[in-house]
Design a protein around this nucleic acid. Structure first.
Length: 336
DNA sequence: CTAGTCGCCTGTTCGC
DNA sequence: TGCGAACAGGCGACTA
């Protein structure tokens, strides 16, 4: 359920609090969260320990941290994190040494630092950074274990628009490197090199319904069930309309709707239904208040209400999950 | 190549 | 009150 805005909120939090910190130790509480790290948990711990967190990047719902070797050079593999359905990355700053004047507050701070979240799966103990003299813990917490962490080699992924200019094969800038495991993910709508024309071409080549295509991360990334429903509502499109039947204008409007909804949610700190979806400090976003479609079965369509009409939103089964739409604004395609 | 299905996971809610 | 079923659903692996 963390989609692009939620993952970007987490990425920005890591960038603000944890970069340049060395990894002092790694504790794997549940090896299932490392399922995608094929060499296993022992290798995972050994590979991270001693390296320092360097940069925080994201594509769609994938997040990755580049690493520095002890000599300061860029490591050839990155720490990839996917939050899956219920994953969180939490930053906990180590309290300063207890002072005699305030020992009571200090012990509370220590207890809060030491307390382990219920579904803690992996804990990285980090050292001081250039900006902070105290240590820190970076906790990967995941109730359902659909998410996970793993190391993946960095490979070049230079956008076509840039390739013509000077990017020599030997020295590809860090921002044009991507973990091999993330290379199949399309650039997302908030990416400066997002390519709407490429998306349109993919729409025209498939017989699938538009919502299925919106959820295909190799076509357009960062969109999950919530924001797909929101974007389709804004664009007044039915989820089953074949992607190849969208006109150029409908495609343009839909991509604009996707971009807008992702931007607005990001500005609100993401969508949260409970304490499961939070930033690195454990705080929830409040975009849920702005939802027009997702989770609103039986409630009036906001747009119809605006027009003085009452249409009740409906929930329909879709690909083993749920789809929400307005039966008036988002009519089913004629043929099938 | 594309499209469809399955398995992975736990916590909450609901019907009987 | 107890218990199984349904549901939340992203994504890689696999099959046709």
């Amino acid at each position: 359920m963390p989609e692009l805005p939620e993952v970007e909120t987490v990425r920005a939090g890591i960038a603000d609090h944890s970069l340049s910190r060395p990894v002092r130790s790694v504790r794997v509480v549940d090896a299932r969260s490392l399922r995608r790290h094929l060499p296993g948990p022992v290798d995972f711990e050994a590979a991270l320990t001693g390296r320092a967190l360097r940069g925080a990047y994201r594509r769609g719902k994938y997040l990755w941290l580049t690493l520095s070797e002890t000599d300061g050079t860029l490591a050839d593999e990155a720490l990839v994190v996917h939050l899956g359905m219920s994953g969180q990355l939490l930053v906990r700053d180590e309290p300063r040494e207890a002072s005699e004047s305030d020992s009571c507050n200090d012990s509370e701070a220590r207890a809060a630092f030491d307390a382990e979240p219920r579904h803690l799966r992996v804990a990285l103990e980090l050292g001081p950074s250039r900006a902070s003299s105290t240590g820190q813990k970076l906790l990967f917490v995941d109730q359902r274990i659909f998410g996970g962490m793993f190391l993946s080699p960095l490979v070049p992924d230079v956008p076509a628009a840039v390739a013509r200019n000077e990017v020599t094969p030997g020295e590809v800038p860090e921002r044009f490197l991507v973990p091999e495991a993330v290379k199949h993910i399309a650039r997302d709508p908030l990416d400066e090199f997002f390519d709407p024309a490429a998306v349109r071409r993919k729409f025209l080549r498939t017989s699938s319904g538009i919502k299925k295509v919106l959820l295909d991360q190799s076509v357009i990334s960062g969109v999950g069930n919530i924001y797909a429903d929101e974007a389709l509502w804004r664009a007044r499109l039915h989820y089953a309309k074949p992607a190849r039947t969208l006109s150029a204008a409908q495609t343009r409007d839909l991509l604009a709707a996707v971009t807008d909804v992702l931007r607005e949610s990001l500005a609100a700190g993401g969508t949260s239904f409970d304490a499961l979806y939070v930033n690195v400090l454990g705080e929830s976003g409040y975009f849920e208040r702005s939802l027009n479609a997702y989770g609103r079965a039986g409630e009036p369509c906001h747009r119809c209400a605006e027009a003085g009409r009452t249409s009740l939103m409906v929930r329909e089964p879709f690909q083993n999950r749920s789809s929400y739409r307005c039966p008036h604004c988002q009519r089913a395609p004629r043929s099938r």
